[in-house]
Design a protein around this nucleic acid. Structure first.
Lengths: 341, 341
DNA sequence: GTGAAAGCGCTAACAT
DNA sequence: ATGTTAGCGCTTTCAC
C-alpha cells in the first residue's frame, strides 16, 4: 500500500490539492459541503499529511530541541520528563541530545539542531565560552535556558536562586545548633550549582564567624565523589557535626561513607542535600534537602517556548523585558538532620 | 542575514546546485578542483544543508523514534542514555516520547512518529492489544522492541530471560539457607517483568516444596508500592526470612518499611531486587539484585536499527531469522542478603 | 469558494 | 565531470 499524499485525497474527493490543504489547516473558507467530503475521505483512508513536506513549505518543523549534559542523571531526566509530559498533548515533538558537559559537543549539537530545523531550543547547561555565545546569537530562533543564564538579554532563563537556597539550608543547620558545618561543594567553575551554592553557604557561616576553609571539600555532584570527599573529611579529623552538600548524590555518597565508618547519621553528623531527587526520600535515612522543581522547570520551558514560537511578538527584545523566571525552591526536612541544642 | 541555500553556494562557486549536492554527499565524481572550491565556500559561509529539504527529497529523515512508558524512571532513562550516547556520533537524532503505559497513547504516538517521518522506531513496552499489533504492521519501517517481544516475527527483540533470572535469584536465596521466601511481584498482566519473574520464583520454590500463595504480594514496581506490600506482609504476621522483589524500587520501598518497623535488613530479612538501577549500590544497605544491562540494550537497539535502515537487506524476513537477542543478566551480591545457615 | 501554479531546498535521473 | 530538469508533498499567492 503506497503512502498516501494530499494528491490522492484531492482526486478521491474530486477537489484540488489546495482545497484539501485548506481543510486540513482550517486556513481558508471552504464550503461546508466539500469540507465534509474531504474530511470523510481523510478518515476513511487514515491519511496523515507528511510533516516533512509541511515543514519545508512552512519553514516550521514543530520540533523543539533540548540539549542537556546527561540523561542518566535524575536531575536532568526529571526536566525532560516535565517537558515531555507537557509537549505530548501539543502538536510538537522533542529532539533530545546529551552532551556530557563538553562545551564543544554542545556547540556542535546546537548546530545539528539548527540543521534539523527545530523551531526552538532549550538548553540545560552553564553558559560557557565566547564561541558558545556566538553560536547562540547565530541560532536565530527562540532559545530558553534552564538552570543558568546566557548573558544574552533576549534569552529567557528559568532557574532557582541557588545562593539564597544555600543560605537557607545553612541557616537551618545553624538553627539546629550546629557550628561546625562542612560543605561538599561542586566545582567553582560551574557558576550556579558550584559557585553560588558555595557562596551562599560561606557567606552565611561568615555571618556567625563559623567559616573556615578547612571545612570545604569538592566533587562533581556524584555519589562516588561524595564518598571520597567524606573520606577526606574523616582523614582530616575533627569531624563537623553537619555537612551541607551541593547535590543529593554527593550527600548520599558521604552518608554511605559515614555508615561504613561507623559514624551515625544524623546522631553524629547531620546532612543536608540539594535537588530532592527521588532517592532523597527513599534513602535510609531519608535526606533533608532543598527541593528544586525540575519537572515544573521543564514544563514551563516548553510553555514559554511554544508561546515564543507561535506569537513571535512575545519574544522579549528590549532590556527591561529580559525575563528570568526564578522558581520557588523549598527546604524539605527529613531524617538526616538532628537538633543538637 | 538570510538563511543560505544550496543555490547561493552554487552561484558563489560558479557551478550548479547539482554539483554542490554531489560534493556535500560524495555521491558522484567531481573534479578535485571544483570540489576544493565548493568546499571552501561552504566553510567560509558556514553553510549547512537543510535536513528538512533533504528528508523530503530522499525520503529519509535521519530521525529514529523511541517510545517508552516513563522518562523519570531510571530503568527507562538508562535505556535512553545508552541509545543516545551511541547515536550522538552518528548522523541520526532521537525523537523521544513517553506514554505512561497507556496503550492508546502508544498507538497515537507511533502514528505521530510516522508522520514525522522517522526512519525507524524503538519501542520499550509490552506487546499490547490487537490494534497495537495492527499499528506495528502498518508502520512499514524498521521497528525494534526492547524488554518485550511483539509476536511479529520480523521485529527484532532485545531482552533478558526474566524467568531464568528470577530462578537464579531465588536459588541464591535458597542456597543461603532461606526457606520462607516471599515475593513482591509486578502485575501479572505485564508479561515479562510481571508474570515471567513471578513464574521463575514460583517454579523454583516449588522444586523445594517451599511455595505458598500467602508469600506473594503485588505492586507496580514503585517505591511506594514496595512499602505498602511490606506493610501487608507484616500485617499477615509470620514474616519471611527473605523477599525477592520484581524491581529495585519495590525492594527499597519494602526495606524502608522494615527499617521503620524495627526490622533489620539483612539480619532479620534478606532482600533481592531486580534491575540494578543506580540506587541499588548507593542504598543503605546496598541491594543484592539482578543487573540488567540497560544502557547496552539501548546501545544495541540503535546499532541494529541503523543497520536495518542502511542495509535494508539485513532486515530479517524469514521465520528462522527472527532474531531475539537475549542479553546477559547478572546477580550482583551486596549487603541486603545474609547467609542464615 | 475553489483551482492552477509557483515554490520551499534539496537530490537524482538524464543529458551533454 | 557537470548542468538541466523534474520531482519529493505540502502551502500559498493569485486568478477566476
Amino acid at each position: 500500500m503506497m503512502k498516501l499524499t494530499i494528491r490522492e485525497i484531492a482526486e478521491a474527493a474530486g477537489v484540488s490539492k489546495a482545497t484539501v490543504s485548506r481543510v486540513i489547516n482550517d486556513s481558508d473558507a471552504v464550503s461546508e459541503e466539500t469540507r465534509k467530503k474531504v474530511l470523510e475521505i481523510i478518515k476513511e483512508t487514515n491519511f496523515k499529511p507528511s510533516s516533512v513536506a509541511r515543514s519545508l513549505s512552512m519553514k516550521k518543523s514543530h520540533l523543539i530541541g533540548i540539549i542537556l549534559p546527561d540523561l542518566s542523571n535524575p536531575v536532568f531526566s526529571k526536566i525532560i520528563a516535565g517537558a515531555e509530559s507537557y509537549i505530548r498533548n501539543k502538536d510538537y515533538s522533542l529532539l533530545i541530545t546529551a552532551t556530557d558537559f563538553d562545551i564543544d559537543m554542545k556547540i556542535k549539537h546546537i548546530n545539528i539542531m539548527k540543521d534539523k530545523g527545530v523551531d526552538g531550543l532549550i538548553l540545560v547547561t552553564d553558559h560557557g565560552s565566547e564561541e558558545f555565545q556566538k553560536t547562540l546569537i547565530e541560532f536565530e530562533k527562540p532559545i530558553i535556558m534552564i538552570g543558568s543564564d546566557s548573558s544574552l538579554p533576549y534569552i529567557p532563563t528559568i532557574k532557582i536562586d541557588n545562593y539564597k537556597a544555600s543560605q537557607d539550608a545553612t541557616q537551618y543547620l545553624i538553627d539546629l545548633g550546629h557550628k561546625n558545618i562542612a560543605m561538599i561543594r561542586g566545582p567553582l567553575s560551574d557558576y550556579h550549582s558550584g559557585k553560588q551554592r558555595f557562596l551562599g553557604y560561606r557567606d552565611k557561616l561568615n555571618c556567625y564567624g563559623y567559616y573556615s576553609e578547612r571545612l570545604v571539600e569538592e566533587g562533581w555532584y556524584t555519589f562516588d565523589d561524595g564518598y571520597s570527599a567524606m573520606e577526606a573529611l574523616i582523614k582530616k579529623g575533627n569531624l563537623p557535626t553537619a555537612i551541607f552538600c551541593a547535590s543529593d548524590l554527593l550527600a548520599i555518597g558521604a552518608i554511605k561513607c559515614c555508615i561504613e565508618h561507623g559514624i551515625n547519621v544524623p546522631d553524629d553528623i547531620s546532612f543536608v542535600g540539594f535537588d530532592d531527587v527521588d532517592i532523597a526520600r527513599m534513602y535510609n535515612p531519608s535526606l533533608t534537602t532543598i527541593r528544586q522543581p525540575f519537572e515544573e522547570q521543564g514544563d514551563l520551558a516548553i510553555r514559554i517556548m511554544i508561546d515564543m514560537i507561535e506569537n513571535k511578538n512575545s519574544i522579549p527584545n528590549d532590556e527591561d523585558s529580559k525575563f528570568t523566571t526564578s522558581m520557588k525552591y523549598k527546604l524539605v526536612i527529613r531524617e538526616s538532620t538532628k537538633n543538637i541544642k
